[in-house]
Amino acid sequence: MATITLDTITKQFDSTTAVDDVSLTINDGEVLGIVGPSGCGKTTILRLIAGFETATEGTIRYDNEDVTHVPPEDRNVGLVFQGYALFNNMTVRQNVTFGPKMRGVGKQERRERANELLSLLDIRELADRSPKTLSGGQQQRVGLARALAIEPRLLLLDEPMTGLDAKLKQTLRQELGELLEDLGVTTLYVTHDQEQAMSMCDRIAVMNDGHIEQVSSPADIYESPANEFVANFIGTSNIVSSDALKGAVDTNAIENLKPGLNGDTQFAIRPDDFIIGQGPLKADIDNLFYLGEQVQLIVSTPDGTELTVHCDRWAGNDLTVGDQITLDVDTSRIHVVEGKGEH
């Protein structure tokens, strides 16, 4: 295991800057998630750390060792891809022992190590099967066992659950989370699925357009988004100006919390932070979506501001499109967002 440090890393592909002056630390034993929209540079960061790309500028260190120019086979990094990239010309056991074999581990030891990992991941009975004959979930476990078999300093997971069905994803997410916690291996988890990142990672880095917008704990990122991009990307947010909230909420209270506000200040309010049925803000229901555990309301205020509001399904059952409702929001739940996060 190791502490991974990216120091002012820039990566350019011809005239395109995929990663722009990024500095990031993954602490020893930590699970750090990188989330962001497609093309934001998150996979490029993973590939830079793995050694498949070389940084245009900046340095990458494993503990105090500069590995910026070290080839991937010498970095001791375990890698699990979206499609798992298992070797179909080998059995499951041969897949798992491949890494230790390349690193000169003796036959007996690598067989024991493989058996141990296959048992840990509950796929011991699949040891002599071809990966081609396995289900998606089983392949994911084999991919993980293969990556862990080299006892990596760092585990890199690149969208490892994409393509699995929702129920299996939920099960594997829990199992993988527990496994990573038990093993204490430093892990970088790259995903576009914020729910996975929120539930599995100790910290999350939100990326946009080659930059890191915010690095913090899942709760902190959700509750206190650094800017409009983070507020919109992580969960759903209503981004409204202070003018739109005048008369509806006590903006003076917000002013007390965050001095120096003006008319252009933007506020972020989560849909589940509204209180329905009381308060000074009147709104008409334009649309209504039943989401299962919650009901999502799309409402508009008298000045035309559109808001997304969530309510419990038992409360939402009495509402229909066209109804007028009253809303309130606790000022302590309103976040001031500073800019769109553009660079």
């Binding site: 086979e73 990239a85 010309n89 390349m102």
Partner: peptide, 30 residues
């Protein structure tokens, strides 16, 4: 096949490029 990912998986596991080509890529294209 997922050529690039298979190759990168093998290399991250410690195989050099020639070894990856001969022991993983070629057998997979058999």
């Amino acid at each position: 096949m997922e050529l690039q990912r298979i190759e990168e998986s093998a290399r991250s596991l410690g195989a050099s490029w020639p070894r990856t080509f001969l022991t993983v890529i070629i057998p997979n294209a058999k």
